[in-house]
């Protein structure tokens, strides 16, 4: 199956031309994916209302009156303004907590669900699956939060998110891949179910934990709507909320307008992407494991 690259020889030409066009197509497609983000990155480092076609992070700074490369004034503002860096810390906190709780609940739930002989296990799994297709809705859920006193508490955001049926089912299918003989052997060795869970199931599912953990982390980091509904205090907003707030505020206040509004918005977008950009290349394979696993099982 050797393919020769030759644009003239009629035997190879059609294929070769195809390869050329395919390559060009993907270069174009990748550009379409990256340029919007890159454009925002550039604008975040130019302290003026410049949009236009400019795709370099260099621009005129009205504060110094000079052309500067990589003007980081907006980033400095984000790092020093408690109204902006506190939400970032909240985001980190809720992401870590949600991921931890999410993994705890998914693994425990999945481990129980694979016990085929356990009385009631079918009922448990129907109870779980039913919530995927039916729920109480916005107002009833709000009123439940009110009744249990979770309003204006970050738990109102983290707890519901930590119970994700899709992720739980995914975890179950990972667990089902573990050979039953291992459980049997451990049981004969006198291991308790908890012991088996900690000593056998978890160590064998590192890939699953990584991929599902990342799903939880991404979802928690991206969460916005729950903050609109449940969180009242401005000290508990996460970064997504703050970012959205920057974009919605019509009456930009006059305090500290040394920074162009669009520059600040762009910088906030970049800041909310950055943590993910760092981990993404390392985690890509786990994401893919998760999705293909889900696809096969679904």
């Amino acid at each position: 199956m050797k393919k020769k690259f030759n644009l003239i020889n009629p035997q190879y030409a059609p294929r070769s031309w195809f390869v050329v066009f395919n390559t060009l197509f993907f270069i174009f497609l990748m550009a379409a994916m990256i340029i919007p983000i890159f454009k925002i990155f550039c604008d975040s480092m130019v302290n003026e209302t410049v949009y236009g076609l400019k795709l370099i992070p260099k621009g005129f700074d009205p504060n110094t009156g000079k052309e500067v490369w990589f003007n980081t004034i907006a980033y400095k503002r984000i790092v020093t303004d408690p109204g902006l860096y506190k939400p970032f810390l909240i985001s980190i906190y809720t992401t870590i907590m949600t991921t931890f709780l999410g993994l705890l609940i998914s693994t425990l739930g999945a481990y129980v669900l694979i016990q085929k002989d356990m009385p009631g296990v079918k009922i448990f799994s129907y109870m779980l699956l039913f919530t995927m297709i039916f729920n109480g809705g916005l107002i009833p859920t709000f009123l439940v939060m009110k009744n249990i006193g979770l309003l204006d508490s970050l738990w109102a955001v983290m707890l519901p998110m930590s119970m994700n049926v899709y992720n739980l089912v995914l975890m179950r299918s990972f667990f089902e891949g573990i050979p039953t003989s291992l459980f049997e052997a451990a049981e004969i060795d006198g291991c308790t179910p908890m012991g088996i869970f900690v000593k056998i199931v978890l160590p064998l599912s590192k890939a699953a934990l990584a991929s599902i953990g990342l799903f939880f982390a991404v979802a928690a980091w991206s969460e916005y709507f729950h903050y609109v509904i449940y969180i009242k205090s401005s000290s508990k907003y996460n970064f997504q909320y703050k970012l959205r707030d920057l974009f919605q505020d019509k009456q930009e206040s006059d305090q500290g307008t040394k920074i162009n509004v669009n520059t600040l918005k762009s910088a906030a977008v970049i800041v909310s992407i950055v943590p993910f950009m760092f981990i993404y290349p390392f985690c890509q394979k786990y994401f893919m494991t998760g999705v293909t696993m889900g696809a096969v099982k679904e």
Binding site: G109, Q115, L128, L143, V144, P193
Partner: peptide, 29 residues
Amino acid sequence: RMFKYRYFYLMFIPVAIVLLIFYYWPMLG
């Protein structure tokens, strides 16, 4: 069998609590 799996019921409690409070209780609404 329920006795044999007693620990598993314990392990399901956290899941059940979250499930009931945040997903089933609102259904009453």
